[in-house]
Structure formats: structure tokens, C-alpha cells
């Protein structure tokens, strides 16, 4: 369905962490922190889509915001490869010019197409804006390129969409405008944070098909973030499953779905309703409810909910993400 991705890493994330301080205790004197993203490492290869899945509060959106430098990490490194040159480190970017160069390569599409587009700008101005910021001076060239982009994302004829305002468009059309804006500069990586979760099924399928087609045509890689596992399967070559700030499993999509290694991944998969009235599902094997990762104890993050926890899980630190099969890793002592 998608072009064969290469083994070349495009984006490398190393030991990334983001802690948010929370005040607690009398007069807010004791300092605690939510470990929203905690020692996370992964890579996105050139031409592939990595699906980042997990439930609300697992840290997927924080990861997205770190990648596009909307927030600064507490620790860790984000490296972007550029052809021929040594990889660019997000933390080491000095000055506006370097930051601009990075932003031209890494773009983002947000979940809410009603909030992410400026209601006072026309569709034309919205798609032209990144072109202007990134030095395409000729207004004519900008207009032509934005018209091209609108056609590319299926808003045709472009001339009927350019003068309109976001509020005159449907949710699906707005999300297409957001994609056109994000891809206008031909970035190497698009971070898509739940881009379809506010759209209806038939519209969602159209956006997913569009993104798959664009990946092949424009050779853009995606980090596709979603809570919807079937959507993640449809979009991704590889999956990374997050739980409370940690990646607990990663591997080729079909492999992870067919042979999930981590007990959390297994619970998630068995909780998904099947679009088949004859299917019968076993209840997911998981204990209790999810907690916030405020000052988490050093052991396995999943311990208190794990149905198979053994003594080693109680005494050892959080298990490292280890390769258990070809490209298939899990952070579990028992996997």
C-alpha cells in the first residue's frame, strides 16, 4: 500500500523527557512533577509512517509538541538527518535562521481543524503564509504554489477555495487546508497529532487516503499520533505504543498486532470493538484504572495494572525497551 520505506533514520529521538512541575503540599512548597514523556527513544525512517498510539495522558501529544519545538524538553535529544550533512540537533539550533531551517523540514497538523486555522485569514493567505515566512518573495509564485497545494489536497478547483474563510468550510475541508499549509514547504517530516479524530468516518477515510497518497507522492514521512488503533494500523508501517510517558512496545505494525508482546498492548488490542456483529471479544486483561504520572516510582510504569506481574517486576527498575524479535521491541521483563 505504501512505498517501501528505507532503513535511513530521518528523525532520531534519544532519551527524550518532559517533566511538568506541579505544586503540592502546604503553600505549594513540595515540588512534584508529571513525567509526561520519560526517557523516550525512537526513530522515524525516511519515507515511513510511524504510528504513535496510546490512551489520553500517555504523552503522545507532549511528544508531538516537543518535536516541533512548541515546548522545550527537560532532557534528551532530537536529531533530524539532512541528506549529505550531519544530523541537525534541535537543541543545538542557534538563532532564528537555523530554527527556520528546522521548521521548514518538520511540520505539524493538529487535531482540531476548528482551532488550528486563523478565522480572519482566507484559505489562500493561510496556505501562503509559510511560503512567505520561508523566503518565497514573489507573490505570484506564492499564489501559484498555494493553488497547487489546494488541488493536491483535493480542494479543487483551487480558485473557489482561495478566497474563502475557514468558517465557510466543513471540518474535513479545514483539515485538508491544514495539510496543505503543512506540506506547502515540502517538509521531510509531518507530525500529525490525531488529525482525523474529530472527523466523521467517511470524511476520516478520505483524509487518511489523501495522507497515504501524499506520502508516496511527496516522499514525506509521518509521525502519526492517534488513540484509534485501527486508524494507526491503516496509516503506519511501524507502531510505537506509549503508556504513562514510556514507549512500552514498538515494531512493524502487522507484527505488533499479530504478536503483541507487552501486556498493555495486549489489553489495548482486546479492548477495541470489532466492526463485525459476529465477533466475540474477551475482556481486556488489565487491573484498575490509569493514574497520572506524578513522581512515578522507579519500577515498571505498568506494574499496578499488570495482570502477569512477577517478583522481578516489583524489585527491578522500569524495564528497558529491548529487541525481542526482528525490529520488535518491548519494555517488559516477562515478554
Amino acid at each position: 500500500m505504501t512505498a517501501q520505506p528505507s532503513r535511513d533514520p530521518l528523525l532520531q529521538v534519544r532519551r527524550l523527557a518532559k517533566w511538568f512541575p506541579v505544586e503540592s503540599g502546604l503553600f505549594g512548597r513540595s515540588k512534584s512533577a508529571v513525567h509526561a514523556v520519560d526517557d523516550v527513544s525512537f526513530e522515524v525512517r525516511r519515507g515511513e509512517t510511524l504510528g504513535l498510539v496510546g490512551e489520553s495522558g500517555c504523552g503522545k501529544t507532549t511528544t508531538a509538541r516537543l518535536l516541533v519545538k512548541l515546548i522545550e524538553p527537560t532532557a534528551g535529544e532530537i536529531l533530524l538527518s539532512s541528506s549529505g550533512a550531519p544530523p541537525l540537533s534541535l537543541a543545538a539550533l542557534k538563532g532564528r535562521a537555523a530554527e527556520k531551517a528546522f521548521r521548514a523540514q518538520v511540520q505539524i497538523v493538529f487535531q482540531d481543524p476548528y482551532a488550528s486555522l486563523d478565522p480572519r485569514m482566507t484559505v489562500g493567505a493561510i496556505v501562503e503564509e509559510p511560503l512567505a515566512i520561508h523566503g518565497i518573495r514573489s507573490p505570484r509564485e506564492r499564489r501559484e504554489r498555494s493553488a497547487d497545494m489546494l488541488q493536491t489536497v483535493g480542494l479543487a478547483p483551487a480558485s473557489t477555495f482561495l478566497p474563502r474563510y475557514p468558517q465557510e468550510l466543513s471540518g474535513g475541508q479545514r483539515q485538508r487546508v491544514a495539510i496543505a499549509r503543512a506540506l506547502a514547504l515540502c517538509p521531510a517530516l509531518l507530525v500529525a497529532d490525531e488529525p482525523t479524530s474529530m472527523l466523521d468516518a467517511s470524511i476520516c477515510a478520505g483524509i487518511m487516503n489523501l495522507m497515504l497518497d501524499l506520502a508516496a507522492r511527496m516522499r514525506v514521512s509521518y509521525l502519526f499520533i492517534t488513540h484509534h488503533l485501527a486508524v494507526a494500523r491503516y496509516m503506519s508501517d511501524r507502531l510505537a505504543v506509549m503508556y504513562l510517558g514510556k514507549i512500552v512496545e514498538t515494531g512493524p505494525t502487522e507484527e505488533v498486532l499479530a504478536r503483541p508482546l507487552h501486556p498493555y498492548t495486549r489489553a489495548l488490542l482486546s479492548a477495541v470493538p470489532r466492526p463485525d456483529p459476529r465477533a466475540r471479544r474477551e475482556p481486556p486483561k488489565i487491573l484498575g484504572g490509569v493514574k497520572a504520572a506524578v513522581d512515578p516510582p522507579p519500577g515498571c510504569r505498568f506494574l499496578d495494572r499488570c495482570p502477569i506481574a512477577a517478583d522481578v517486576c516489583r524489585s527491578a527498575p522500569h524495564p528497558p525497551l529491548e529487541e525481542k524479535g526482528a525490529g520488535h521491541s518491548a519494555a517488559c521483563y516477562l515478554a
Partner: peptide, 23 residues
Amino acid sequence: RALLASVPSLFGPKKRLDHLPGE
């Protein structure tokens, strides 16, 4: 039929989804 064909599935063969044109 269009509604059913637009829903991705977690299991079974992976096939391209149909989507309805328009709104």
C-alpha cells in the same frame, strides 16, 4: 455500504478504504 467500507479494521486483511466524495 459506504459507511461500512469507510471504517478501518484492526484485524483481517488490510485493504484500501472507500470514502464518499462530497459532504
